[in-house]
Amino acid sequence: MTVAGSSPLATGTPRSRRSLSGSRLQGISFGIWTAGVFAFLYIPILLLVVFSFNSSRLNIRWEGFSLQWYGALFSNKVLITAFQNSLIVASVTTVLATILGTVGAWMLYRYRFPFQRSLGLLIFIPMVMPEVLMGVSLLVLFVQFLNLPLGYTSLVIAHTTFCFPFVLVGVQARLQGLDPFLEEAAMDLGATPVQAFWKVIVPYLMPAIVSGALMSFTLSLDEYIVSVFTTGSQSQTLPLKVYGMAKVGLNPQLNALSALFIAATFAAAVAGQFIGKRKHS
């Protein structure tokens, strides 16, 4: 930091130019890396989309173009119902887990509750507990102690239980280093604690909340073992219908279903992007 004697202008300019190119270099290499990682994430997805147009039933070799699996999918009520169930359960789970996780993380951060540390440890139990233990113990709890019939409710409770810690941990990370005066400033301006939380803290936490919601939705959508034990016949989700399928070869209708869902999500996301852009400008 000894710049004594030399003109600040003379030394400042080349330094900032060098660092700029440094940050640019970093930006470019990270960009390339990110593109590579996206390719890695999408390679199997590309393959499953390709195989949804395969005429062979076995998902292993390409044997010719066909739309038969899409046709068959639309008349396969069981698969479509199961997929709807999956979406319902995942959506409700996401809402519940996000609320529980976000509010929980904030309360544990903002207040000193007795047994605070034990509470913080308890939250990790659903994450580390093997799925079969969680499924069976929740099943016993629902059937023998709570007298809760197995169905949507029991399934959503079970899914929320293993999803909300993911939200909570993510939100906690975002809270670390929160400016304590953010909330106080809002309250000085006359906001109640609830208003301050809603108007100031929630927007600040939004990236973590969105991440947590995305993770919950994904975890719930794909859960098999916990679902086996906690669902009833009316709320069969897609993984339950899919799991035994490998015996006779995974049905390419599943590829078709996945391809359509991804396409729909992309369409919705791009539309959202477009609408968002118009609002911004």
Binding site: P44, L47, P239, V242, L254, S258, F266, A269
Partner: peptide, 17 residues
């Protein structure tokens, strides 16, 4: 969302891919 969407497919199909 692009990071997450590949995982909105069935686990088994992904793995068999």
């Amino acid at each position: 969302m692009l990071v997450m969407v590949p995982f909105w497919t069935s686990f088994l199909i992904r793995t068999y891919a």
